Amino acid sequence: MTLSPEAAPRPPATLSAGRAYALLGVVVAVAYSPSYLVMIHSLTEGLGGPAPAATWSDVLIDWARYALMLGLVIFGCVWVSRRLGLGVRELFTPSAPAPTRSGRRIHPVITWVLGLLAFAGLFAGLELSAVLATPAPAQAAGSAPGPGLDAVLWEVGTRVPNTLATSLIEEMVLLGLIALVLGLAERPAWEVYALSAGIRAAMHAHHGWDALWWVLLGVALMALYRRGTLLPLILAHATYNAEITVLTITLALLFG
């Protein structure tokens, strides 16, 4: 499959703003509904007192949730693309990019590196927030059940689904689909950035005010996508998740 600009010529604008937002609303509401339901459940449990410790059955449910969301995202992207008479490959190379000074797209490797730096900025922001915040208890309910191998197995079980799936679940919709649909509706660039970053922050609203770091991440990733292609940013997200997973598992193995 060729992901060059020539492979994705811009079709004429055939969408009204209302239809564009209706299509995006259906995909976001359906594909991300499992995540929002879990978030609402966690918030309501928090109001009723300390949350019960997580078990391995909860981990299996989480794996199923990520698999369901990934399937819904892929189905949603295919569904929207077909309704618009386009191919899914249109998601991977924006048809109306904000050009660089050279008039060319950013090289995929450079896009990947810059995307990884954007995620590193997210990590740094979250760490800064943690340092400035009141120290949390040493071990919260539902964290690793014990030191050594048990802790490693727990971290693998809880983090691997996130590592494997979220890069596709988030970036195919929050970058590719939003830019494509709003581009066809000829919506202004600020609207594309605002919608993408806003949904990304809402998906991480359980982090409280730290969700604002995801707004900055969303703006940076959309800027890179509009000047590059999608695949390197999916890989950057997956690389970041994998690095965090390896770091967490290593710490669990060393310190329990």
Rank of each mutant, 00 (worst) to 15 (best):
S4I: 04
E6K: 10
R10C: 14
R10M: 13
R10A: 15
P11V: 01
L15R: 04
S16Q: 07
G25V: 06
V26R: 10
S33Y: 03
S42I: 10
S42Y: 10
W56P: 08
L60W: 15
D62H: 12
W63S: 02
L68I: 13
L68R: 07
M69I: 10
L70V: 01
L72V: 08
C77E: 05
V78W: 15
W79F: 12
R82P: 11
R82V: 12
R83S: 08
L84Y: 10
E90Q: 13
L91N: 03
A96L: 09
A96M: 09
A98D: 10
R101Y: 03
G103E: 05
G103L: 05
G103P: 08
R105V: 00
W112Q: 04
A124R: 06
L128S: 06
V131N: 02
Q139G: 03
A144Q: 13
L149V: 14
V156S: 06
V156N: 00
R159D: 02
R159P: 00
V160F: 09
L168I: 10
E171K: 01
M172W: 10
V173D: 02
L180I: 02
V181Q: 03
L182N: 05
G183D: 08
L184N: 12
R187P: 01
Y193R: 10
Y193V: 09
A194Q: 11
L195Q: 03
A205Y: 11
L212C: 08
W214P: 00
V215S: 05
L216R: 00
R226L: 14
R226C: 01
R227F: 03
L230Y: 03
L230H: 03
L230P: 00
P232V: 08
L235K: 05
N241D: 11
A242V: 11
A242F: 14
I244Y: 06
L247I: 14
F255D: 13
